[in-house]
Simulated assay, not measured.
Amino acid sequence: MNRIVISNILLFCVLSMSHKTYSQDEYPVMEGQYLGQKPPGMMAEPFAPGIISRQGWELEGVFAPGMKEFYFTTKGGKYKQPTVIGFRQQNNVWKKYIEFMRRGEIVFAPSGTRMHMAEGYRERMGDGWTERKSLGPMFDRDDWGIMRLSASAKGTYVFDDYKSNDVIRISTLKDGKRQAPTLMGPIINTGKWTAHPFIAPDESYLIWDSEREGGYGDSDLYISFRQKDSSWGPAINMGDNVNSDKWDAYASVTPDGKYILFNRGMDDDNNNVDIYWVNANIIENLRPKL
């Protein structure tokens, strides 16, 4: 199953949204942490079923650092193009406060001041965000196809490139200067549809998705842990508590470190994609014991 390249695939959603304003009629009242959802255990389950994860296309769910904002991408109904919907928690109630055209998959810098969007980004400005800016010619290249770029607290960038046979690249900072991106090794760049990396804020692990021999049938989520010599350890399939025989992809860890959010295709054609989540203790269970 090909991984989703959102800008190139036309998908239809049976869900119809009739409201044209940021009316809360689109969503029920949600109070408390995690949009009022009961946290999952060690088996992945849908995130906010019937509210966020509905029939149709909802994916790329991320919380901003501070856990007071939540964003996801949708398409279908009134949204003819992939659109990011943003919620903000105010007085313990989550309210939709923004929507904008999707241009790159959102990943937040650990500081919370930058919203990465592929080769572009927005910066926190007061109570909102600036317009999208470019990371510059080192990343904004016609021969690269960046879908997702993830940043560590040290400023390391890890990103995918679907125009170069689905590979993942890494770019570090040295003496405050951005280093040219290089290909990650075969531990990461093996298999098909290798994409959507997430690097831990402390760079202790990297999660990505790929279709590999020995997997569960479609793209699975894999994790690699940083070794004492700074190399990356073996690629570890995250197991059937996370992965399925469907398309499992685009993982991120909530900024509080407690949960993993990811996408799952609910049918063979990925016309219905939901957001799932699972307890992040799975990461520690997979970490090799010294």
Rank of each mutant, 00 (worst) to 15 (best):
M1D: 06
R3P: 03
I6W: 07
V14E: 04
S16F: 00
M17T: 14
K20E: 12
T21D: 15
T21H: 06
Y22F: 14
S23V: 10
E26L: 11
G32N: 07
Q37R: 06
K38V: 09
P40D: 05
P40W: 01
G41T: 04
M42I: 03
A44F: 07
I52D: 08
G56S: 05
E58M: 06
A64V: 02
P65A: 12
G66V: 07
E69A: 04
E69F: 01
F72V: 07
K78Q: 09
Q81M: 09
P82Q: 05
G86C: 00
G86P: 00
F87G: 05
N92Q: 15
V93S: 02
V93T: 09
W94A: 11
W94T: 13
Y97D: 09
E99S: 09
F100T: 13
G104Q: 11
E105L: 15
F108P: 04
P110C: 03
S111R: 00
M115K: 10
H116Y: 07
M117N: 07
Y121D: 13
E123P: 01
D127L: 07
D127H: 09
G128R: 13
S134M: 08
L135K: 09
M138V: 15
G145P: 09
L149K: 01
A151Y: 03
K154S: 00
R169H: 13
I170T: 02
S171A: 14
T172Q: 04
L173N: 04
D175I: 02
D175N: 15
K177A: 08
A180I: 10
P181K: 02
P181Q: 05
M184L: 15
K192F: 06
K192L: 14
F198Q: 02
A200K: 01
E203Y: 00
E203C: 00
Y205G: 13
L206Q: 07
L206D: 09
W208I: 14
S210F: 13
L221K: 04
I223F: 00
F225W: 03
Q227T: 06
K228Q: 02
G233S: 08
N237P: 08
M238L: 11
M238W: 08
W247S: 15
W247C: 12
A249W: 00
Y250M: 15
S252C: 12
P255S: 02
D256N: 07
I260H: 05
I260L: 14
D267L: 08
N272V: 15
I275V: 15
Y276G: 03
V278G: 03
N279R: 06
I283D: 01
E284V: 03
N285R: 15
N285V: 05
